[in-house]
Lab assay of single mutants.
Amino acid sequence: KFGRVHERAEGPAKILAIGTATPFHWVDQSSYPDYYFRVTNSDHLVDLKEKFRRICNRTMISKRHMFLTEEILQKNPNLCSHNEPSFDVRQDILVSEIPKLGKEAVLMAIDEWAQPKSKITHLVFCTRSGVDMPGADYQLIKLLGLSPSVQRVMMYQQGCFAGGTMLRLAKDLAENNKGARVLVVCAESSAIGFRGPSEDHPDNLIAQALFGDGAAALIIGSDPKMGLERPIFEIVTTAQTFVPNGDCHLALHLREMGLTFHCTKDVPPTIAKNVESCLIKAFEPLGISDWNSIFWILHPGGNAIVDQVESTLGLEPNKLQATRNILREYGNLSSACVLFILDEIRKKSGREGLKTSGDGLDLGVLLSFGPGLTIETVVLR
């Protein structure tokens, strides 16, 4: 008597548009150690500064975009301390800036989509910054002038794996609601975790050397309108798992001094060791076991992770080039990073006149991972 209210779509979910945005301000990685130790009044920690310089040199990052300028840091000195309470200051900045950054990426996506924004039916927003109620999803709806009846899902504090999570959720929403057009937004800022150095917490140096700011937005829907919408990728399958006891290797915690970062040297080999089982589960039903026969979007948690995944799986050097390019130009953008790589690989395919948006290949994989050593596996066509 009370059956399904919403009719299912006929076809699989497809990515119809991609937009990205970054803050205008950026830092050069080669000179960042001098800048970082100067603005945090830590130049007296000579040995720690040299250690940080070595870490920065190993990241293979060229530059990173950041909202925090020297002027902002001078006005808010607690942000430059390692342990002073600064959460309220971070909140005041990020509750406002995260939706604005997301808006810039959304406008780029809508411009490519070339359809009225009134056709957006759902919003899925993800960030690890600016936790608030009502959330960044609500603020973004107002900034864009979208209908208050847009169906919203707000996900805070997920971390680097969440780019894949957003695709998984959007696929379910698009395929189970005929005519749905799902706006996916990942907006991230390193301002939540920026803090001064400490000899007692070397993990913090890794975070300060890796993370950048950026937002990515996608429009996802099934059954694209012929002649009006141009699909870029099809989302074939999605899956999530985590490595048992992985939280002892990688975890982040909200504290009075901001978001703290805990990471062990076992993260790269542990991820590399567990990736292939995810690939087998995803691609065995499709008859694929040659990992060089697919295109790759791999989250660059750090250069060591990229190198070890490449080595463990025997990947050809060009397979992870898009990942390395984004890491070099932006650093680790947390949940937004794989979506930047997705954009990079389709643009490169277009520039080179390849037959598909995925490096000329039919199928590919998007792998994202993060806290708890959670792994998201997304098969794309």
Rank of each mutant, 00 (worst) to 15 (best):
P99R: 10
R351S: 04
R38K: 14
L140R: 03
L298D: 10
D92L: 03
V95W: 12
K63M: 04
V5W: 04
T270A: 14
F340A: 12
G135E: 01
W296V: 10
N303M: 08
L366N: 14
R8D: 05
L68E: 08
T312E: 12
M60W: 01
D359K: 08
E276G: 05
L259N: 04
E112K: 04
S147R: 09
T237I: 10
G302R: 00
P23Y: 04
E284L: 06
P285T: 08
V267C: 12
S335G: 11
T121N: 03
I120S: 07
G145C: 05
P244S: 10
N274I: 11
G364K: 03
M60R: 14
I271E: 00
L123S: 00
T374W: 14
A336F: 01
P285Q: 08
N41K: 14
T270D: 15
L73D: 14
G246E: 14
P23F: 00
R324A: 03
I294C: 03
K103S: 03
Q29K: 13
G364Q: 01
L250F: 13
K1C: 01
H122K: 10
P371A: 08
A13Q: 00
H253R: 03
A114Y: 00
P317Q: 01
D359W: 02
A251V: 00
L327S: 10
E284W: 04
R54H: 09
D34R: 01
S96C: 05
N332Y: 10
G135S: 06
R381V: 00
W296E: 04
P116C: 07
S86G: 12
F2G: 07
P33V: 07
Q29S: 08
D88R: 11
K63S: 13
R324P: 06
G331S: 08
L48A: 01
C278S: 05
I93Y: 15
L101V: 04
Q139Y: 02
N303C: 14
H65Y: 06
L250E: 09
L228E: 09
H299Q: 13
D266P: 12
I98G: 06
L107S: 07
S96F: 00
V131R: 02
L361P: 07
E344D: 07
L298I: 10
K117C: 01
V106C: 13
I305D: 08
L252F: 10
L354R: 02
T40N: 06
L366K: 09
G364M: 02
S86I: 01
F24C: 13
A336S: 12
I61L: 11
S357F: 10
K14T: 11
C278W: 04
E10F: 13
N83C: 13
V378L: 15
V27D: 10
I98A: 07
Q115H: 04
M257T: 07
D47I: 00
A239W: 06
I55A: 13
T237D: 13
V89N: 03
K281D: 12
L144A: 04
T127S: 08
L367A: 15
N83P: 10
T260P: 14
D88C: 11
S42G: 13
A9S: 06
A251I: 01
N83A: 15
P371V: 04
R54C: 07
A239C: 08
S368K: 05
P268R: 09
S311E: 13
Q29G: 06
V267Y: 11
V131C: 08
G360T: 01
E276S: 12
F37P: 00
D88S: 11
R8L: 12
I93K: 05
S293D: 15
A272C: 13
E97P: 06
T270G: 11
A322M: 01
T22W: 07
F295A: 05
N318V: 07
V267A: 10
V267E: 02
V39R: 05
I297A: 13
A336N: 14
P285G: 12
R8P: 11
T264D: 05
L101A: 07
I18P: 04
E50V: 12
F24W: 12
I288Q: 04
K51C: 07
L313P: 00
D88T: 13
L315D: 07
E329D: 10
V338N: 05
A13I: 06
R53V: 02
L254K: 14
T20V: 06
F52I: 07
A114E: 00
S277T: 10
F52A: 11
R90T: 06
A17L: 07
C80W: 11
D307E: 10
D290S: 07
R230C: 00
K265H: 10
R324C: 04
T377E: 13
H262A: 12
N76A: 12
N318W: 12
K273V: 00
K355A: 08
Y330N: 13
G302P: 06
E284Y: 01
D111Y: 05
E10L: 09
E276Q: 08
N76P: 12
L250D: 15
P85S: 11
E71A: 08
V39A: 11
D343C: 00
D28L: 00
D266R: 08
L73E: 07
R255W: 07
L143M: 11
I288L: 05
R4E: 13
R255D: 15
R255I: 12
P231V: 02
K51I: 10
T69C: 01
Q321L: 10
V27T: 15
V379H: 14
Q74K: 10
R53Y: 14
L107Q: 14
D47V: 03
H65N: 08
P269C: 15
R346K: 05
L320Y: 01
Q240K: 11
P244H: 05
V365L: 04
I294W: 04
D359S: 03
R346E: 02
A304V: 07
N274F: 15
Q308G: 06
L228T: 02
D43R: 03
I98V: 05
N57W: 02
V379T: 12
D343S: 03
T356S: 01
G350I: 13
G350A: 15
P116L: 05
K142V: 13
E316V: 04
G353T: 00
L354I: 10
N318T: 14
S334F: 01
D92K: 07
V27F: 08
W113Q: 00
N303W: 08
L373Q: 15
I235P: 09
V365S: 15
A17G: 02
R328C: 05
Q308N: 06
N78I: 07
L79Q: 06
L73Q: 11
D137I: 04
C278R: 05
P269T: 08
T323M: 14
R255N: 12
I294E: 10
W26C: 14
T260I: 09
P134H: 03
L250M: 11
D266V: 07
D88N: 03
T20F: 09
E10D: 09
H262Y: 11
K75Y: 01
I375N: 15
Q29W: 09
G130L: 14
H65S: 03
V39L: 15
G314T: 02
T241W: 05
D88G: 10
R381F: 04
T312C: 10
I93N: 11
I141M: 11
A114P: 01
